[in-house]
Amino acid sequence: MQSLVEESAATEQQTEFNSVISAKRVNVFYGDTQALTNVDLEVPENQITSLIGPSGCGKSTFLRCLNRMNDTVDGCRVEGEILLDGVDIYGPGVDEVLLRARVGMVFQKPNPFPKSIYDNVAYGPRIHGLAANKDELDEMVLTSLEKAGLINEVQNRLHSTGTSLSGGQQQRLCIARALAVQPEIILMDEPCSALDPIATAKVEELIEELKENYSIIIVTHSMQQAARISQKTAFFHLGEVVEVGDTEKIFTSPSDERTQGYITGRFG
């Protein structure tokens, strides 16, 4: 495999890890426009990986490749390999619905369904038939809300509508909803950009806790957030991965000038 031979200098000094996702030579096109070029990225298990880069650099496109969200975009073509636990998620016979249960997603703007808090969380388990009976479903809902750090705030109002919660609570409800289908990986696309600093801190604290059991990939425009919460950072620019490495290394002495320029605020 060519990509294994041509390891860039920027990836040399990383601490060792087990990959849960291996992206190899990923190219993505929207019609004639190439959005990603030869992206190689190893996503470590039970760690937080942040994807940073200026707007339009391809980081969200890459994130959306990981649970085949791009399949829903007209004219989008994905080339290369994305291995989840060694199996190509774009290979034949892969069920996208099951894939999205294994690779959950949390979006920029909290988007609870216009349903009760309980039904929001129960939605996934119901669709996937994960619970055998009402008691099991109750258990799943409560456990997910607990893991999402929301249970104390909502246990007396599980049947109120999800949209009645505050922004930060809604985002944690969306995280609970993603957790309910027992994913291995959680993708987060700027999950705190619509939240105030306190709600952001709560979500960040939650993400930290979740990494014990899940592998998390987060797209963020906040350098401070990437530095605070992630163990790995990948810097995207013009559709390519410029540099990927331990977050500490990226934020103290990045190898590539472009990374340095971007994170220090000298870009463009």
Partner: peptide, 12 residues
């Protein structure tokens, strides 16, 4: 790039 100044010039 890192050789040039910051976008926020007062930082420089």
């Amino acid at each position: 790039m890192s050789g040039s100044g910051h976008t926020v010039t007062s930082y420089d």
